[in-house]
Simulated scan of single mutants.
Amino acid sequence: MPAERTLILLKPDCVQRRLMGQVISRLEDKGLNLIAMKMLKVTSALAKEHYAEHVQKPFFPALEKFITASPIVAIVVEGLEAIKVVRDMLGATSGLKAAAGTIRGDYSSSRQMNLVHASDGPEASAREIGLYFKADELHAYVPTLTPWFKADDE
């Protein structure tokens, strides 16, 4: 099965609460490869492009204000079923509804300030990675530990 890629954004609340290291550690502990990472400030234009399907919705102004309020960390991870694995690790959108043991369940108590964004499917992943990274900023590699994370036939 080929590796899959997904975009993860450590949102302003994650950065401000200094939870970046905990989130990154959990991704690495799961065996996902971080193949790109950078800190940036989301502009209003980027927010509108990223959340294009929500721009006309009544909650968008608050979302835009939140996502542009502080730097974020954009990450691309690669691994088997990475999209589903990451979304399962994050938990439900609302931290109040997310199961204990998930990132949101352990660290969030809000629907909007839920620490982390992750792409919800292959098409969204490809589109979102392209918003935050150029092709030459992605650095795929095979860790020497790979044989210890999965069987050869997986």
Rank of each mutant, 00 (worst) to 15 (best):
A52R: 05
Y107N: 11
A45S: 01
L80Q: 08
H50K: 07
T43C: 07
A98R: 04
I103L: 03
R87A: 07
A99L: 15
K84A: 01
I72G: 04
E78V: 05
R111P: 11
I67P: 04
A74C: 07
A82M: 07
G95W: 00
D106C: 09
I72W: 07
G101C: 09
F60M: 06
L96M: 12
L80S: 08
H117D: 06
E64G: 03
M39Y: 15
T68I: 12
S70L: 13
L115S: 12
R87E: 09
L46E: 13
R127A: 12
V73P: 10
A62D: 15
G101W: 15
S108C: 07
V42H: 09
D88Q: 15
R127W: 01
A69I: 02
I75R: 00
M113N: 13
T43R: 06
A98T: 09
Y107I: 03
G101F: 11
V77Y: 00
I72S: 06
A99N: 15
I103M: 03
L90S: 02
L115K: 04
K65Q: 13
E123C: 11
L40P: 07
I67G: 10
L115A: 09
A74E: 11
D120V: 00
G91K: 03
M89T: 05
A98D: 10
R104W: 10
A126M: 11
Q112K: 14
T102K: 11
S70W: 13
K38S: 08
R111W: 15
A45N: 05
A47I: 05
L40E: 12
Q112E: 14
L63P: 04
A82K: 08
T43I: 11
S108Y: 02
L40K: 11
A124P: 08
S110V: 08
Q56D: 11
P61T: 03
L90F: 04
A74L: 03
G105M: 07
K38E: 13
M113Y: 14
I83K: 10
G79F: 05
Q112L: 15
L80W: 00
